[in-house]
């Protein structure tokens, strides 16, 4: 089986979108193109665990086929990782369930299988999660209220790269912030295998007033497409290089 690349958008926000199209719509659009949208909503210390304004967080993740989680900023690091890994497992399990349905009939899913066999299936899912390539586009809200949360976001992202780079599969990350100076979103860091370099970039982020979450997601999907072209070209080259080793 050829190892595929999982594509994820990780949206980090602390509030509601207030400009442009519905983010749930653009998230659904992303899902249709094989990109999972995960959302982390950061709560202020005085907020309860179930604030009204952050309902959107769950909606975006649901239509984007991903995972969502509300957290206080202290727990951000671990949450970013849990959400990313959970979404990976979920996506991979989705593939496996589809395969199962083809083999065993439409009613079959992992829960329908007896526990003994479930183990073997999960081993396959785990293997795939460990070895598949992963691309994460981080989309950080930098509207005014996020200002004091950005240092924590930065730390959490570096930590995420430490965790994911312990995997066997390859990783690529890039970071965009929204709103951008003139556009809906702005590039902070181009596709790279590690996130160590962000330490110097992050303090420079300025925060703006509007929150164009929907348009930013649309723009993010476009970024995958752009890079995809280049990558396809490179991938074609790779087997040749490997053969040269013989």
């Amino acid at each position: 089986m050829k190892k595929g690349t999982l594509k994820q958008i990780l949206l980090i926000t602390d509030g509601c979108s207030n400009k442009g199209e519905d983010p749930a719509v653009t998230a659904a659009l992303a899902k249709q193109q094989g990109i999972t949208v995960n959302v982390i909503g950061i709560l202020d210390d005085d907020q309860t665990e179930d604030p009204e304004g952050l309902q959107e967080v769950e909606d975006i993740a649901l239509s984007g086929g991903g995972v969502s989680q509300l957290v206080y900023k202290q727990a951000l690091s671990q949450t970013v990782q849990t959400v990313t890994k959970q979404a990976m497992t979920q996506t991979l399990q989705g593939f496996v369930n589809q395969e199962l349905k083809q083999i065993l009939g439409p009613e079959q899913s992992l829960e329908e299988v007896e526990p003994e066999k479930r183990g073997e299936i999960m081993e396959v899912v785990e293997d795939m999660g460990e070895t598949c390539d992963l691309e994460v586009l981080v989309l950080t809200d930098t509207s005014a209220s996020m200002h004091d949360k950005l240092p924590t976001v930065k730390e959490a992202l570096i930590d995420l790269s430490v965790s994911l780079n312990a995997r066997i599969g390859r990783n690529r990350f890039c970071i965009f912030s929204f709103p951008g100076k003139r556009k809906d979103m702005e590039k902070v860091l181009d596709w790279s295998p590690k996130l160590d370099s962000i330490s110097t970039i992050f303090p420079k982020l300025t925060s703006g007033g509007i929150t164009p979450t929907g348009p930013a997601i649309r723009e993010a999907v476009y970024q995958f497409g752009k890079k995809g072209l280049l990558k396809n070209l490179r991938d074609e080259d790779e087997p040749g290089v490997e053969e040269a080793g013989y």
Partner: peptide
């Protein structure tokens, strides 16, 4: 050889900047 599946920050060398999570 794989990535550590589950950890607790205080006990994690990655958190202390003293190694990878391999």
């Amino acid at each position: 050889g794989r990535a550590i599946k589950e950890y607790t920050e205080f006990y994690d060398r990655g958190y202390w900047g003293l190694g990878s999570r391999k």
